[in-house]
Design a protein around this nucleic acid. Structure first.
Lengths: 211, 211
DNA sequence: ATAGAATCCGGACCCTGGGTCCACTTCAAC
DNA sequence: GTTGAAGTGGACCCAGGGTCCGGATTCTAT
């Protein structure tokens, strides 16, 4: 567990360099598989030892990158204003959360892909998945008339999986906005049980999370 | 593409031996990652060269195993009686298809896992996924009042992904029947748009696909 | 300022596992 | 039985993740 912060100047500088280099490489290269640890180290102007000391292993590096990129959204979700923040009515928040997640994966396709598939263990063991799932589940819990919230949360999240997104973008060439509205429609139909109220797919598509 | 049949006795015998050995190993071992090609070859009493000649590469072996196991369902879907066969009304067939797929993945967890994640390329490039998707999409097309059938098909299939199933079984300890009914409910809610008719979740859960 | 300890650096090295190669064997067609 | 096409198996190759450790750097105490 080599994850604790170091106070040494060079260590910090190198950590940043690695992060930056990895970021660049993962977004540039076609498939995450053909960016090796050695590549990252070289691009960062650093030895492999340094890289592994700083991040433990490949998964650790990916995780660090991912968490860093996810931070803004995390903030917005935990303490931000509607439609992502806690003050949002549940029926509006669920689609907003999933839309934000989708946008994130669209903006960080390669990285998300690397993290979700590359790991030796399933993506469901990652703590960030756990966070999204329990949050979504909690919000679903506040909507009356639904059943199987736990499973529903999993199923909804599954619709935004990185490799699916990648496939839709790369093979089926579905444009961003279309994909967002499709997901919104899908979510809407899942939530439609019980007394319906407010929020159509179009409305949700309005609050753009990224340009 | 070394996939064509051989007529030689020894080749056929070895192919069978490999298939059987791989089957055993993949279902026995905890994670598909720790069954190596060398293991399979050894267990089959065969050299690595033979193994690779017969199946091309790891993915080829997995594919062959998977297709073999999937054959019965494939038959049932293409030419069988309701609720899987083509004669089934669309609103009933969609849940039946997904239930069959779920049962299949429950019965072949490890194998499905190995095939879906282990591959270097995404599961969405596998032709068996393409088959399921286009079938499901076609059936959805016959249901009036839905939109985004292509995406909906992807999203529904995503709810039965091998690693999700694995997680639900292994971590959350959700029993088989409960999972089937949860999926059925989920599917139902997605299809619920437009004039509803027939088929509740309970009905679907009745036609058991496997003991 | 400077010694000394703690920490970090980096690239040579190890090891696993997928995939290839090829001298030798086996099959089946004649 | 002969023959050559096809199959066999295990030694071998190689990429890539991860480790190691002698030497360089930085912090701290004096």
């Amino acid at each position: 567990m080599p994850e604790r912060q170091s106070s040494r100047k060079d260590a910090i500088r190198n950590r940043e360099a690695v992060l930056a280099a990895a970021d660049t490489l993962f977004t540039r290269r076609e498939s995450p598989e053909d960016v090796t640890m050695a590549d990252v180290a070289a691009a960062a102007g650093v030895g492999k030892g340094t890289l592994f000391r700083a991040f433990g292993d490949r998964a650790g590096l990916l995780r660090a990158l991912y968490e860093a990129r996810l931070e803004p959204i995390r903030q917005a979700v935990e303490t931000g204003p509607p439609p992502l923040g806690p003050a949002t009515p549940p029926r509006d928040r669920v689609p907003a959360l999933l839309d934000a997640l989708l946008c994130f994966k669209l903006d960080n396709r390669r990285l998300a892909l690397a993290l979700e598939e590359g790991g030796s263990s399933s993506p469901y063991r990652a703590e960030h998945y756990e966070r999204w799932h329990s949050l979504l589940r909690a919000v679903l819990e506040q909507i009356p008339g639904l059943t199987d919230r736990d499973f529903t949360a999993h199923a909804l999240l599954a619709a935004t999986r990185a490799d699916l997104v990648e496939h839709l973008v790369e093979e089926e060439r579905i444009p961003r906005e279309r994909m967002r509205s499709q997901l919104a429609n899908f979510v809407t139909s899942v939530l439609a049980c019980g007394p319906l109220q407010g929020s159509t797919a179009e409305e949700v598509t309005e609050n753009r999370a990224s340009p």
